[in-house]
Design a protein around this nucleic acid. Structure first.
Length: 243
DNA sequence: AACGTACCCTGCCGGC
DNA sequence: TGCCGGCAGGGTACGT
């Protein structure tokens, strides 16, 4: 489920609970997960996010690289089912992931850099620019999901951002004017910030403006929201105010 | 190079 | 009620 906003929230929660603590035990409950090196005894120096990855920096040049994919989530109270538990003196984090698409790997620093090298700019960074989107003629909505062009935007926030920027998701990415890309950049930021602002309660309280609102009225102009499929993903937009 | 499709898994939902 | 197909907010591998 998670996109950048949800991953950011998770990363902050993990950091608050586990930063600076020593790993006492690792419990692997799913044979799909294989951890190369022994992590017990290492200290968690930092927990941070890049795109939709969560990275645990450990002592001894080791990094735990986690991707939640569709259904991954960390819990601090032991759930009925989970794939992995990281146990520390300050408590444990349980990695629950019903669809089991999520990935966990132990990497050295150089391997981590390589693993993240292909990612595009962080949308919330001051230096972020969207010029890479002009490299492709695929629909702008599809380009937004390409992590090499911009990192961390997923299907929901792509829809939300395009609605905010009043752009038709089907437009070829390389045909956007610089001014329209600027609008899109603001739309992405605003949508992501709104998500992050929900905090840990995000799943209970989060609402969307266009995502999953087919046939319901546009919140700006009242026109019925349309659903189309682009690159096999549901796409929602207002046919009147998104041009 | 750039684009489309199949696939990895499980849970949930609507329709019959 | 019970079963079944379709669908899901991720990314990758592979074919054209």
């Amino acid at each position: 489920m998670p996109e950048l906003a949800e991953v950011e929230i998770q990363s902050r929660m993990l950091s608050r609970r586990l930063r600076g603590t020593r790993i006492r035990a690792i419990e692997v409950r799913d044979p799909k997960i294989q951890l190369r090196d022994r992590l017990i005894g290492r200290t968690i120096r930092r927990i941070w996010r890049r795109a939709k990855f969560i990275i645990f920096d450990l002592t001894g040049d080791r990094h735990l690289l986690v991707h939640l994919r569709m259904t991954g989530w960390f819990e601090f109270v032991q759930p009925a089912r989970y794939r992995l538990a990281i146990v520390t003196a300050k408590g444990a984090a349980y990695f629950a992931d019903s669809r089991r698409f999520g990935t966990v790997a132990v990497l050295r620093g150089d391997e981590l850099r390589r693993a993240l090298a292909h990612l595009g700019p962080e949308p919330l960074a001051r230096s972020c620019d969207l010029t890479r989107l002009a490299r492709t003629r695929r629909p702008i909505k599809v380009a937004l999901l390409d992590q090499r062009l911009i990192a961390g935007v997923g299907n929901i926030y792509a829809n939300e951002a395009l609605w905010r920027a009043r752009l038709d998701p089907r437009r070829p990415a390389n045909r956007l004017q610089a001014k329209e890309r600027q609008r899109l950049q603001h739309g992405i930021r605003a949508a992501l910030r709104k998500g992050i602002a929900y905090g840990p309660q995000i799943f209970e309280v989060q609402t969307f403006t266009v995502y999953d609102r087919a046939l319901q009225p546009c919140r700006r102009c009242g026109t019925r929201i349309r659903r189309v499929v682009l690159a096999q993903r549901s796409t929602f937009f207002c046919p009147r105010c998104q041009r």
